[in-house]
């Protein structure tokens, strides 16, 4: 069984995000970029499946500018076998990515697609679900634990009230949650080997996908600066302020 994992190039989680002066988005020039942490978890899970013999090949997919190759290389250094990059400088929204993924899934015929539940840049939490809908496949979101057996996957899901166990038919789309696993560090020999693993580059047009944005960003702003707090003397005063000033109760 092939496993396809999607990896997104995002601003590194350590970087302090700055909004562009013209309010059209966030500053990405000269900013450290890394693989979306939830996608690292997806890659790790796929590699573990391969190591256990549950998967035969792990393919790392990314979409975006040429530099996404680096993100794919990171996945290859962790242990993925080969990469597919859909290269475009266009803005990509979840639906476009889901369509691109579907086109690659049609081509590669994996038994499982594992993606991060969301990317830490736009926090959309949509791509996996959209992909499953486009494919007509089962979907297991927010996976905390996976067990692949006999043409189905047991997924322990992180839901608001706790953990939910479901069993879904394969082929399936899985979205990873934080506690599914702890991604490994790539070893030095594997970083060297990753250089020699193939990455296929495709264009959205060649896949017959129109990636034009369907959503329009009106404005991006910094969150308001936190104001200095005040001390209240009594509980009554606190309740009064919460009710009348903050309007939260």
């Amino acid at each position: 069984m092939k496993v396809l994992v999607a990896v997104k190039r995002v601003i590194d989680y350590n970087v302090k995000i700055r909004v562009k002066a013209d309010n059209t988005g966030v500053e990405t020039a000269n900013v450290k970029m890394s693989m979306n942490p939830f996608d690292e978890i997806a890659v790790e899970e796929a590699i573990r499946m391969k190591e256990k013999g549950a998967a035969t090949e792990v393919i790392a997919f990314s979409a975006g500018p040429a530099q996404c190759q680096e993100t794919i290389r990171t996945a290859l250094a962790m242990g993925a076998d080969r990469g597919v990059l859909v290269q475009t400088d266009a803005e990509l929204q979840p639906l476009a990515v889901a369509k691109l993924l579907k086109a690659v899934v049609d081509k590669e015929q994996p038994g499982l697609v594992i993606v991060g539940k969301q990317a830490i840049d736009d926090d959309s939490n949509q791509t996996g679900q959209m992909l499953a809908a486009l494919l007509g496949w089962s979907v297991g979101t927010f996976a905390n634990k996976l067990n692949v057996a006999d043409g189905s996957v047991e997924v322990k899901r992180e839901v608001d009230g706790g953990l939910e166990n479901i069993k879904i038919k394969m082929p399936a789309v899985i979205t990873t949650d934080l506690r599914l696993n702890e991604p490994r560090y790539a070893s030095l020999p594997n970083i060297m080997k990753a250089k020699k693993k193939p990455i296929e580059t495709l264009a959205p047009d060649a896949l017959g996908v129109d990636v034009a944005p369907r959503l329009k960003t009106l404005k991006v702003e910094e969150p308001p600066k936190r104001k200095a707090g005040i001390k209240v003397k009594t509980v009554a005063e606190l309740v009064e302020k919460l009710r009348n000033e903050a309007g939260v109760i």
Binding site: E70, R73, T74, A77, Y185, A186, L188, I191, M192, A194, K195
Partner: peptide, 22 residues
């Protein structure tokens, strides 16, 4: 021949994770 700038970059980045986190 394998020590190309992109490979060196990948090596430095991965080593950095080990240094900072372990």
């Amino acid at each position: 021949e394998d020590a190309t700038p992109d490979t060196i970059h990948a090596i430095v980045e991965e080593a950095a994770k080990l240094c900072e986190n372990v």
